[in-house]
């Protein structure tokens, strides 16, 4: 029961692409940037990654230790809540399954936390079973700081704000705790195929 805008028509590619969730457009070769604050620049010597919270055995990895973990390459479509999608992006990093393997997870959700204070919440089901990674390589190159380097979370089946940039760890929580954008009215889960942009969608 949408309102038709007289004289409005599509100006982008005429073919409907079934890789495109509702309300999204293909940004092509561009890779737009979105974050609430300035880009942090953490040198590798000061970087580590942690798994903590509701776990039997908290974990931390230095940069070298993280780089030595088993790695995976993924090629995925990504969807930003600001309406752009980008197809076939290539990343390399460590599966979240690997990071959680020895931690003895006891909670039901994770809160990813980042340099700069950013957080985002995810149900465990959305970051396990090969659905999420901590990546440090984009298109064969070290991940640039403005895109979340040295490392970011990658959860491609959810809107891209869930793929926390500059990630420094996962805190396992006993229940759902809203993260940064979620506190400001963005959706708790953020499934682009259900167009879960804002709370209540």
């Amino acid at each position: 029961m949408s309102l038709v805008s007289r004289g409005f028509g599509r100006r982008r590619s005429a073919t409907t692409d079934d890789r495109l969730p509702p309300g999204q457009y293909d940004t092509g070769d561009r890779f737009p940037v979105l974050s609430a604050g300035p880009t942090p620049h953490t040198p590798p010597a000061q970087w580590d990654l942690a798994v903590r919270g509701e776990v039997a055995a908290p974990q931390t990895w230095t940069w070298e230790e993280f780089r030595a973990l088993p790695r995976e390459s993924v090629s995925v479509d990504i969807h930003c809540v600001t309406k752009w999608s980008k197809f076939g992006t290539r990343w390399e990093g460590v599966s979240v399954d690997t990071l959680l393997a020895d931690a003895g997870v006891q909670g039901s959700h994770v809160l990813a936390f980042s340099d700069g204070g950013y957080t985002t919440n995810l149900p465990l089901d959305d970051v396990t079973n090969g659905r999420a990674w901590v990546v440090d390589t984009y298109d064969g190159q070290p991940l640039a700081p403005e895109h979340g380097g040295p490392a970011r979370l990658l959860v491609p089946h959810l809107y891209f704000w869930k793929s926390a940039k500059w990630v420094r760890g996962l805190s396992v929580t006993p229940r759902n705790e809203p993260g940064f954008w979620e506190t400001f009215g963005y959706h708790d889960r953020g499934d682009p195929w259900r167009e879960q942009r804002y709370s209540g969608d």
Partner: peptide
């Protein structure tokens, strides 16, 4: 992006700087 980086270089705390990006052709690739 440019202004935010310069502000942090000048000594402003990252947490004190809030950004709204409109997009545009010059997005970093």
């Amino acid at each position: 992006e440019t202004v935010a980086t310069t502000l942090v270089d000048l000594g402003h705390a990252s947490s004190a700087v809030r950004l709204e990006r409109f997009g545009g052709t010059g997005d970093p690739a």
